[in-house]
Simulated assay, not measured.
Amino acid sequence: MPMKKILLGADGSDHSKHAARYAVDLAKAFGSKVLIVTTYRGQTIVTNDPAHQYTMKEMRRRAKHRQSWYQELLDKNDVPWESHILDGPAAEAIADTAQRRNADIIIIGSRGRSNLVGMIVGSTTNALMHIADCPVLAIRLKHRLPSAK
Rank of each mutant, 00 (worst) to 15 (best):
Q43T: 15
G42K: 06
I45N: 08
I6R: 01
D78P: 00
R41I: 08
G109W: 00
T55N: 06
R100G: 01
H52G: 03
R61K: 14
Y70S: 10
A27F: 13
R21Q: 10
P80L: 11
P89G: 05
W69Q: 10
Q99D: 13
D104M: 02
F30E: 12
M56K: 11
I107P: 04
R21E: 09
Y70C: 14
V24A: 09
T47N: 10
A103V: 07
T44S: 14
H52W: 12
H15E: 02
A95N: 05
Q53L: 14
G112P: 02
A91F: 00
R111L: 02
V24Q: 12
A63E: 06
E92L: 11
I107A: 09
H65I: 10
Q43G: 15
Q67Y: 04
Y54L: 12
R113P: 00
S13I: 03
L35C: 07
K17G: 03
G42T: 12
V24N: 12
I85V: 15
I6K: 05
I94K: 03
L74R: 08
S83I: 12
K17R: 14
G109S: 09
A91T: 01
T47P: 11
D25L: 09
Q71Y: 00
L8K: 06
I45D: 07
L8V: 06
Y70I: 07
L26S: 07
M56L: 14
S68M: 10
L86F: 09
S110D: 07
K5G: 03
R111Y: 01
A23H: 08
A51S: 12
D87Y: 09
K28Y: 02
Y70K: 13
T44G: 08
K33S: 11
A90Q: 02
Y40L: 03
L86M: 13
W81A: 14
I85M: 06
D87E: 13
R66N: 10
Q99N: 12
K17L: 08
L7I: 09
L73K: 10
D75A: 14
I36N: 03
K64V: 15
T55Y: 03
E58M: 12
T39W: 04
D104Q: 02
W69R: 09
R111T: 00
K57Q: 15
L26Y: 13
V46H: 11
D104P: 05
I85N: 07
Q53D: 03
W69F: 15
N115T: 11
Q53F: 00
D14P: 00
Q99I: 03
N102Q: 15
G109K: 04
D104I: 01
S68G: 07
G9I: 02
S13C: 02
T38C: 07
H18N: 05
T47V: 06
I105T: 13
E58T: 10
D25F: 02
Q99P: 00
